[in-house]
Structures are given as C-alpha cells and as structure tokens.
Design a binder for these strands. Structure first.
Lengths: 212, 212
DNA sequence: ATTATAATCTAACAATCATTAGATTGTTGA
DNA sequence: TCAACAATCTAATGATTGTTAGATTATAAT
C-alpha cells in the first residue's frame, strides 16, 4: 500500500524531472532557440555551437519531459516547443536568475558594450511610436524566425543582409533593433553597424518571447 | 579575450545554476515548505521526512543560488525564501509539470480520494462568499504558517487541533478547507473528518502561494 | 540499387550529485 | 566550565549525467 509519503515523493519527483530537463546550459539555449521558430537538429546544433550528436541527446531529454515535440519533414526532423508555457517558463527562469545571481548581472553588464538602449518600462510606448512611424522597428533575426512570429509593425532586416539593405532605412528617424532576447548579441551588432553608418539606432533587449 | 560564444555560455550557465538548484525533489519540497513560513532546519527536515544532515546540505545548495536566506536565532538557524519570486517560480514550474507530464496528472488523480472540491476558476467568488459569511474558510496548516500569511477571512484551524475545536464551526454553512497547496494532503484529511462529523465541507486545492 | 545526408542509438569515460557517517562548530542553560 | 542541542563540515560511497566516438537507421537524390 502506498503511504502519503510515497505519494508526495512521487509528485515532487515529477516536478523535479522538468527542472532537471532545464538544468543544463545547452538545453536552455536550445529552448531559447526554439522560442524563435521550429528548427531542425542540424540548425539547432550549429546555432548552439555543439555537435549534432550532443544536440540530439539534449533534444531527446527535452522530448522525454514533453517540453518539445519532434516531427519528421523529409530528411530533417523539426523540433518545436510543445507549448507556449515553455517559452513563458524560459523567460521566467531567466528573470529569476537575473534577479538572484549577482554573477549573471555582472556578466550582462560586461556584455553591454552598446549602451544605446531603448529604455522604457512600458512596451506600449514603443508600439505607439512604431505605429505612428515615429520610430522604425527592425527584427534582425534570420528571416524564417521573423516569419514564425514578430513584433507588430516590425520590418525583417536579418543581420547578415543588413549591410546590403541600408538604403531601405530612413536616416531621419530612430531605428530600434531587436533580436532573440537579452542573451542574444545580434541587435547589439546591428546597432553598432547602423551607428557607424550615420543612423540613429537604439537596441531593444527583449525578444518576441518576452512580449507575452 | 572573451569571444561572444564564451559570454553566451557564461550566461546560460548561470541560468542553469538556478534550474539545477531546483532539480531535486527534496529541494522543491523544501521550497514549498518555505513558501508557507520561515522555518528552522530541524523543522524542515522533519516535515520533508529527511535527515537533518541532508536537509542542511540541500539548504546550502539553495542558499548558494540565493533562492533562500538563513539567519541565526539562538540555537536555531531560520531559513526563508529570498524573494516572493521564488514562490512564484515554484508555482509556475509545478503548473508546467502538471501540464506537460501525464505521469503527474495520473499521480494527482490517484491522490484525490476526496472528490469534494471547491470548483471555481475565479477565486473572487470564494472571497465574496467568505466575506458575506455564506461559507467559512478554514486554514488547516500549523498555527505559525497561518500567522506568516493566510487567505482573507480565513480562520486558523490546524489539522491536529481540528477534532477538539469542531464546536467552533457551524453545521448549517459550507466549510472550505485549504492547506499548503495541491501536493499537501492536510485539507483532504480535514474534509474527511468534517464530513464524518456531519459538516458540509469542501476542499480548496490551492494554498497561499497559488493566490498571487 | 547505391550513395549521401540527417539524425539517432550504443557504449564508454569522466565529471558531478545525492546520501550517509563521523567529527566539528556555535549557542544556550545548568 | 560543562553538557545538550542545532546545524554544519569533511570525506567517502554509489548513482546519475554530459560528452564523445563508432555503428546504425531512415529518407532523398542519383
């Protein structure tokens, strides 16, 4: 017969499975990448800078806890988040870590070589200015991530193509660039490039996942 | 010189530290207990059904990631959550686990021998009825946890003392009992006892942490 | 059919973690 | 000062996890 203690142990054990699944830097990075768009193993491995074998092993673990789902499409197997709740979870644990760990705050301060940030607590203001055309919001992630979901009024301007498409951007208005989120350096690079070319550019730290 | 990749690795590493800290059933149980009230190591060990040595080791880990704080009070060392965000994190990861893991849903179904639940999406309704006196809300956790924080209009009726204090409860109104949360069996036990004595009693699954 | 590609499976290693026992520290009250 | 108590530290163990290499599976293109 199962005692109350056995039952409780089993319950906490299950929650711990989810936490264990998230308790690896590379798995967290994979989750963040999947917050942007569904992707094949090869792409995930390249973007997270690990071998395909290792990516496959980590994805298997994430699939076992049903945080992600997989589907074959021709030669590739496409992974995606199993639910929006997983994206919300990623954002929350990142915020908690930023809040609790001095070391993370320090690392992020070090990272911010570009100090030209769009500082505004309320995203509504940005939204309003983007709508009125007072600012131009550009999404510098790869095109397929833009297509999978993007901020309202944003233009797709992948970092790799930005240099060749500068003529599409106005010099008289402020350009606000965003990417995958606060751990991603693409928008910082974009702002550096734009400012060097004489544009008025600011960086938005948040990505699509943070706009829930 | 630090490459972009080194920086990113360090960032995810820090978030993973938080996840690792939560990736143990016993540490999760300790966090849930600390959501109720600050407690001494001895008390935590007893309530989580582990040795004091083990509790101490787990608490050390939680302290290292600044999820909990410790303070000496005489002979005892009292632990408490370092922030309300930790309680919110516990509730969210528990909900995510419930949502994703079939095994957890199954275990919780098995647990619910008492099927007399207060079913209501909006807590406002309960609040209104508690205010008007239409239902009596009782908190069956130990007295000190009630003192550390409880639902509005709730009466403290610790499970251990409930039997001796039945005369303080009305037979003509519905009694709603709550405890530490969905993983806690105290309110179920309370409802069983009350119904056996001829009261109209219902169980509320959520605890104080869930009412954020 | 054969070959190339994408991904997984298997087995192995080292690294990390959970748990326990025994010794130690800090505090209170006699 | 001493004994009792609460909690931690140290060291050792067995179990789990991360990572890699090599073999294997499934699909698409030739």
């Amino acid at each position: 017969m199962k005692t109350n203690r056995d039952i409780k142990n089993a319950l906490y054990e299950q929650v711990a499975r989810i936490a264990k699944s998230a308790a690896s830097p590379k798995r967290l990075e994979l989750i963040e990448l999947l917050c942007q768009a569904p992707k094949a193993v090869e792409v995930l491995a390249r973007e997270a800078n690990i071998s395909m074998k290792l990516a496959s092993a980590h994805l298997k673990e994430l699939k076992a806890t049903r945080l992600v789902e997989a589907e074959r499409q021709g030669k590739n197997i496409i992974y995606r988040l199993a639910s929006d709740d997983v994206a919300r979870f990623w954002v929350q644990i990142r915020l908690l870590a930023e809040d609790r760990l001095f070391e993370l705050q320090e690392a992020m301060r070090e990272m911010r070589t570009v100090s030209h940030e769009w500082v505004s607590k309320n995203h509504d203001e940005l939204l309003k200015k983007a709508k009125s055309g007072e600012v131009v919001v550009i999404d510098v992630r790869p095109g397929n991530e833009f297509e999978a979901g993007h901020l309202p009024f944003a233009l797709s301007m992948p970092l790799a193509e930005l240099k060749d498409r500068l003529s599409h951007l106005p010099k008289d208005r402020t350009i606000v660039a965003y990417c995958r989120g606060p751990f991603c350096l693409m928008s910082a690079d974009a702002v550096k490039l734009l400012r060097a070319e004489g544009f008025k550019a600011l960086q938005l730290r948040d990505g699509v996942a943070e706009w829930l």
